[in-house]
Nucleic acid binder design. Structure first.
Lengths: 102, 102
DNA sequence: CCATTAATTCGAGACCTCTAGAAATATGGT
DNA sequence: ACCATATTTCTAGAGGTCTCGAATTAATGG
């Protein structure tokens, strides 16, 4: 994952609603949850939720599959892992001695 | 780290300039770098940089120590680790079988 | 003291995000 | 065809972020 991709993903996760949505979807697992289920769980107005889901989809934090009327949202676990790896590798590089000394 | 703290930290890292500053400071290690050094390295105008540093300080991604005229910025490694733990624990919870199957 | 250096605060413009109701679209059932 | 369901798109207002020059504050050295 490169710098811009990482920044984009971090921006999207840096919103309470979107972080809550993402956490709910992670709990839902690989089968994900429909937009309606997310709405019922989190109580976010449909249009607001749709806006947030579109943003998360755009940066591939989640993916959306349409099954007739319902849209299923599934977390992109691999991309979250890539983001975590980026933070760990790129951002903890100078912390070699920090784990016991500082 | 709780939900709001995590969201706040993610928001701050989700800006290209701030992410670049943070990465630079991580490379600088526990001794950190002065505002002037960051400015020289990244070429961000002083007032813009100061604004970003203030935001990062507010959410404790970094801390600032004033030594006479110079302000030293030091990454808060522990808080980044807490953020990574949050993402790993809270957000990868549903990915148990994902590491080999999906 | 005055100049210089280091950094912050002020101010203002441009742009983006968030929010949510209303309208539109799409699908399925009867 | 009609109605209900599921979700998106439209629209607009309120508020936040980003940017950076200019002014300001603070500390050191001559």
């Amino acid at each position: 994952m490169d710098h811009e991709q990482a920044a984009d993903s971090l921006t999207e996760l840096g919103n309470t609603h979107r972080l809550a949505v993402f956490r709910f979807l992670v709990r839902a697992g690989h089968e994900g949850a429909s937009v309606g289920e997310i709405q019922k769980e989190l109580g976010i107005p449909a249009s607001t939720l749709s806006h947030h889901l579109a943003r998360m989809t755009k940066v591939r934090l989640i993916r959306q599959e349409k099954h007739s009327r319902t849209t299923i949202c599934i977390p992109e676990f691999q991309n979250l892992e890539r983001l975590i790896d980026f933070l760990t590798e790129e951002c903890c590089a100078g912390d070699a001695e920090g784990k016991d000394a500082a």
